[in-house]
């Protein structure tokens, strides 16, 4: 048994310790908002937060997440940063196919939690590991800046 804290809830799972966190979330816990894209931390679709830091859940063994706070897309609306990011994503109608957007939003929320006014370079550094085949990058950049602005002004 591995004890996990997922979106504020304590959960025990029976998966083997080397099972990637992604598959514990998706298959064991049925939380399918976190996406599978590449399996080897090359695309960022599976990004979740571990103690607030963005990690690629496809390449994080569940044992490494034990005892740490796991936050997924399903809980983004519960945090002020996550809420601001989602609102900006809606305002800019960012998603197209939408498959990468859980990872994009998790990446953006982690960036904004640390960097309240990210520069283009900050955005590049935080987001360049999260791929989008629909080409929504310009809208992602605009939405991140907008979310940062709304968090500063409280609007």
């Amino acid at each position: 048994m591995i004890s996990l804290s997922v979106n504020g809830k304590n959960i025990s799972v029976n998966d083997s310790p080397d099972t990637p966190l992604l598959w514990v979330l998706r298959d064991t816990l049925g939380m399918t908002g976190t996406k599978f894209g590449c399996g080897v931390a090359l695309c960022g679709a599976c990004t979740v937060h571990l103690d607030g830091a963005p990690v690629r859940s496809c390449s994080t063994p569940v044992s490494a997440a034990a005892g740490r706070k796991i936050t997924t897309i399903e809980a983004m609306a519960a945090s002020p940063v996550g809420k601001a990011v989602q609102a900006a994503w809606i305002k800019h109608d960012v998603p197209q196919c939408g498959y990468c957007q859980s990872g994009q939003i998790m990446g953006a929320a982690a960036l904004l939690a640390k960097t309240r006014k990210p520069s283009d370079t900050d955005i590049d550094a935080a987001m360049s590991g999260i791929l989008c085949r629909c080409g929504t990058y310009n809208q992602i950049r605009a939405a991140i800046k907008d979310a940062a602005q709304s968090m500063r002004t409280g609007s």
Binding site: T32, G33, K35, F36, W89, I90, V94, P95, G98, Q101
Partner: peptide
Amino acid sequence: ARRLDTPAKVNGSAKFGLDVR
């Protein structure tokens, strides 16, 4: 007009093929 599929695509609730259980 705003896209009708955006809200579900920003909170993880949009169901793709891989999300079928």
